[in-house]
Design a protein around this nucleic acid. Sequence first.
DNA 1: AAGATCTATCTTTTT
DNA 2: GATAGATCTT
Length: 763
Amino acid sequence: MKTDFKEEWKHLNPYQMEAVLDESPACVVNANVGSGKTTVLIAKILYLHYEKSVPLEEMVVLTFTNKAADEIISRLREREADLSREQVRGFGTFHSVALHLLKNQLPVEQMGWNREFTVISPDEEADLAAEVITAQKLKVKYKNRLKKRLEQEYQGYLRGKESSRYKDDLFLLYPLLEAEKKQQNKMSFSDLLRVCTELLLVGRTGNPVSEKEMSYTREGRTKELPGEYGENPALPWHPQWIIVDEVQDSDALQIEFLEALKGKDTRLFAVGDPNQVIYSWRGTGENMFYLLKHRFQAKELSLPVNYRSSASILEAANRFQQSGTGIQSSRETGGKIMVKNHYDPFQEAEYLAERIHALHDGGRAYGEIAVFYRLQKQSEILEKVFERQQIPYEVSVRKTIRDIPVLDWLIKVLRFSVNPADEQVGIDVLADPQYGEKCTRAKAKKTIQEQKRDSVLLYRRMMEFQGQEEWKKKEKVPGAAEIFAFFGLKEALHPTASSYYEDEKLVLKLLEKICRYCGEKDCGLIDGSREFVNRSALYGVNLLSGDGEVEESDFIGNHDGTVFSAAIGNGDGAAGDGIAREVAKIGNGIFPRDTVKLMTLHASKGLEFEIVFLIGMNQGLIPLHSQSMEQEEEERRLFFVGITRAKDELELSYYTNPGEPRVSGEYSRYLRMLPPHLLEWEELRSEGEKRSNLQQLRREVQEQIREKREREEEKKTAVKRARHPKYGEGILVSEDEMTVEVEFAGYGRKQFLKAFGEVTIEA
DNA sequence: AAGATCTATCTTTTT
DNA sequence: GATAGATCTT
C-alpha cells in the first residue's frame, strides 16, 4: 500500500507536501483557489491512515456540505473498496457528525432528550415556535419573519444578552421552545451542535480552551449540567485528529463544537480560503479563518499555486484577491478575457446559443462550457432560447424530498411512527389537506392527545409501528409493498385521483430506499427508518436514487439534494407535474452528461470549467446593490469565485438595455478594476437589436416565462379544499372571478360557475 | 381605524 | 432608494 502514496506524492508541490506531513497540534492551511485543496485533504487522510497508522475511526473529518463529505469518502473508497460505514462514521458535515455522536456516544438523556429523538427542519421549528407563542400568549413581533428571527437572535440569547432587539418576548420563547422540543423529543439543527458541544464539555479537564472562553456558554448554563458521565469511562471521547474542510465558512457554534471535540492530544488540521467567503449573509463570520488560527494558536501554512486557470485569468483574479499574498500561476500563457455587450438578455441568449454551437462544432464538448449569472431568474431566458436552439443544458436547481408533497408527507408519517411524542408532526400528517384524514388541525390534535386509536386507521398504524416486534429484527426487514399496505397508504393517496399513479410510484421508491438502507446498516426497520428520517432532515435529500443510476423521467439528485434539471432542447422541459423532468445526477463535480451548465455565481463555488461565460456584468447586478461595505466586499469575492472557475477562456458580457428596474445600462465597475491589457472589448451593439425575429422571440419567451410563473404561483398557494353536494370533497385547482375548478377523487377535474353557489370553499 | 413609524427586502442558500 | 408589511400611536 505504502508505495502507492510515494508514487502519488511525486505530484505534490512542496507546499502541498508540507501541509500533508505537518503534525503540529493545530494547523490552518490558507489554500488559494484551485491550489489542490481537496488533493491535500485526501492525501493527508491517507498519509495519517497508512503511514502513521491512525485508524480512520480516530479521525473526525468535517465538511460544510454533504456533497463535499461524499466526495472525500468516495475518493477514499477508491483506495479501499471495502470501506465500511462504521469506519467513516466521523466523516461528514458538522451536523451529521454531531448527530452520530449524540445517537451513539453521548448521554443525551442528561440534557433532557431521549435516545430516539428525531431531527426537525428550521421550518418545523418555526411552526412549533408559533404554537408555543399562541399557547403561552407571548408577545413576539414580526411573526412572519419568525424563522429568521429565531435563527438570527439565537446567538445573542446564548451569549446571555438581556433581551431581544425588538424588546419583545423572544428570549422568553427560547427556553419554552426548548422545553417543548424536549417534550416532543426532537432537535433542531442548531440543537444538534449545541447539545453535542455541551455534552462534550461535561466533566472535561485539562482542556486547551477553558470553558470561560466558550463564547456562547451562558453563566450558569454549564453549572446546571451534571459533572460527569457516570459509569461510562470512555467519555468524553476525543479523536486523534480533526480535519476541517472550507473552514472559512464556519460559524461560532461550529468553532465551539471544534473546541469541545478537541482533546488535549487531538491534532487539528483545517483548510480554507478567506477569499471565498460568499455566504456570510447567512451567518458565517467574516474572519473565521483567522479567528480559528488565533483560538487554537495554529500554525499557518499556505497553498499558493493555482493549477486551474490561465495566467491572464489569474492576473485578473489577483486584483480581486482580498487577503493573502497573491495567487501564483502554474501556467505560462493565456488568451485575453473577452468583454462583450449585448442589447438585452434576449439578444445575449441568442448570441450565446450561436457561440456555443460554434464552440461545439469546433470540437468543444458542451460539458466544458458554463454560463454564470448573479440571479436565479436570469436563467429563464437562457433556458427558453437554448431549448429553441437545441443546445443541451442543465440548470442547477435545488430539489429535495420536501418539494414533492407526497414524499414530504410520507416522511412525516414515518417521523411520527418512530417518535409518537412528536405531536406536531402527527397533526401535520392527519390534517394534511391532500393526504391526511380530512380533518382540521384542532381535530387532529384531539385525536392525538386523547389517543383515539380506533377512529383513524392511519393514526392507529403509526402508533403501532414501533410495537411491530418482527420489524425490530434485522433479518426481518419487510418489502416496500408490505409497509405500504401496513399504513393503508393506498387509501390515503386517493386511488381514483389523477396523481395516484405518480404518487404511488414515488412512495414505493422511497420505501424501497429505506428498506435498502436498513440492509446496508444491518439493522431492523424501526431503527433503520428512524435513522433514515433523521438523515433525510440533514441531507436536504434526495435519497431516491441509488448511487450512479440515472433513469429517464426519474427524479434523481446527488446527495446534497442538488439536482441539475435538464431540458434537452426538445420543447417542453417543464412537462406535467414538474417533478418527473428529465434530470441528471451530478456528483463529485463530474457531470456525466454532455450539457452546458447554467448556474448562479454562488452555485459555481467548488466547480471548474474550460470555458466560462459570466453574463449580466452590469452595474446593479454585478455587484448587486449593497447597503454596506461588508456586502460590497462579499460581492467582490463572489465575482472572484466566478472568474476563477474558468480554466482556459473567460468571457464577460453586459446589457446596454437590461430592462430591469434596478439594473443600470452601465457596465460593471469591476470591469474597470481589471487590468486593461487583459481585456479585449468587442462592441456588439448593432441595429440588429430591432430585427423582427428577435422582437418576436422576446414576445414569445416573455409570454412563456409569464405562464411558467403563473403555474408556479398556482402550485405555491396552499391546497384548499372545496365541497360540492354531488361530488363531495375535492381539492381546489384554480379560481378566478367567475369560475372555480375542483379535482374530486373519483370524478376528476370539474369546473363550476361561482354564481351557482354549489361549491363551497374552505377558508 | 387611520396615519405614522419602523423593518426588511429587493439577491445569494447549507444544515 | 423604493416599497410592502407589520407595528405603534393617536
